[in-house]
Design a protein around this nucleic acid. Structure first.
Lengths: 236, 236
DNA sequence: GGCAACTCCTATCATATGTTAAAGACGGCA
DNA sequence: TGCCGTCTTTAACATATGATAGGAGTTGCC
């Protein structure tokens, strides 16, 4: 929860009272093992899901069962704040690894927004920033080849982990399988594997189990044409 | 402007006074010819752009100049309401055809939101719904083949035009070139052309100049695996 | 009314990525 | 310690889509 507040405060001004009010939000703990859809397509939602540990993917689905990950959420991020404004889920939430979730009731979030307008604004801004990331992924998937897509994703995740002080920016834990990486990038697991090896041979980065080690940040940024503009963090 | 209010009222409750307040918003008229970037990447924005006539594309860009359209906006839609919360443009705005824009100052929008909280909420919801469309596009581009992508896009636009009463749902004007369609779908203009012909041979739809005629709605929906869930308009 | 600039259409060829399948590696559980 | 399920890695082959280029229509401008 502190991570969530830190994240909000990183892009929106909140005074001590407001930060405290967010911290006081009642939550319900939920532990899910790997690969569980804990929010299903079309479901009517009355609570938002804050990631406390693990990794969550937001999934879109095609009729023949192929899945596309539309966003991933690391600890400290609210995976579906948007559900407040769109209570019928148009997208599923799935645990990419074993994960613990804090469920926050919509009514409490709404009450908080009414009481503290700057919190409402912070939530709104948060939705918008999430949207900017999705838009960037669309560029990535629509216009870049596999190598650039992977490089871009690893750059983005490095910055996002660093934002929450969960990494020094060179090394972080990303518990995704190659299949899941493929789902995020519009690729096959086979092709992800090929390309990952290529990136390793080039000495740009290494992925072992879930540990990502970036060996050449500048080259990786170049390979992924990565620009932090869309993350609104010029400094990182 | 009336169209914009109608759109807001379609998903958020606004009383007469609030609707009126939106209508009173001061605007600045801007006419742009086809293919002009009237908002550039990285620019600092202090106004939002409401489409009055024509068609606007939100573009992401790759270093070698390939472009990806991240969303298109028809008359009555605010193309970059999100700029209120993210004033540095991470995405460009380009006129897909000759277009007229109404510019609305951020400060006026902010003042309106402060004065009428339901308007602030309506804006927030509007951002979230826009985001849901982008997410769906990501699924489309990441996991469907060219035929399905095109079908999906044409279904979506039919519904969106119908929402604003600008079409009977079978026929509408979409002033996009095949190149621009390719930019929206992560395809080449050549392949768009091939696939469009295929769709015509199948008697699903016809596109002449800018006139889209849907010949077999149900088949088109099937081809694009189109489900209105993400548009939050179960009825259309 | 004619030139210039876009679009659209077609054809050929090139290639990145998908498909399928099977064999290792790894890791958790009994 | 050993087994079983999941994940990774390889290989051979298939195909959707890209690249390039040229011609034929349109459109709009002077």
């Amino acid at each position: 929860m502190e991570l969530f507040v830190r994240r909000l405060a990183a892009h929106s001004d909140l005074d001590a009272e407001e930060r405290d009010a967010v911290l006081q939000l009642p939550v319900q703990l939920l532990e899910v093992r790997s690969n569980v859809d804990f929010v299903r397509l079309g479901e009517q939602i009355d609570h938002a899901c804050l990631v406390a540990e693990g990794l969550v993917g937001k999934f879109g689905q095609t009729e023949d069962g192929r899945r596309q990950i539309v966003s991933v959420h690391i600890p400290g991020e609210m995976a579906d704040l948007s559900s407040l404004m769109m209570p019928q889920a148009a997208t599923a939430l799935n645990s990419l690894s074993s994960t613990t979730i804090l469920r926050v009731a919509h009514k409490d979030l709404r009450a908080l927004g009414l009481r503290y307008p700057s919190i409402a604004t912070a939530f709104w801004r948060s939705s918008v920033l999430d949207g900017a990331i999705v838009a960037q992924w669309l560029v990535n998937v629509g216009r870049r080849d596999a190598r650039a897509r992977l490089a871009h994703l690893f750059c983005e995740m490095a910055v996002r982990y660093r934002l929450l002080d969960q990494s020094d920016g060179r090394r972080y834990t990303l518990p995704m399988t190659q299949e899941q990486l493929g789902d995020a990038l519009g690729l096959t697991s086979v092709h992800v594997n090929r390309t990952l090896q290529h990136l390793r041979e080039e000495k740009l980065l290494r992925v072992e189990r879930s540990a990502v080690t970036i060996m050449d940040w500048k080259a990786l940024v170049r390979a992924g044409e990565f620009d932090t503009l869309y993350l609104q963090r010029p400094d990182l």
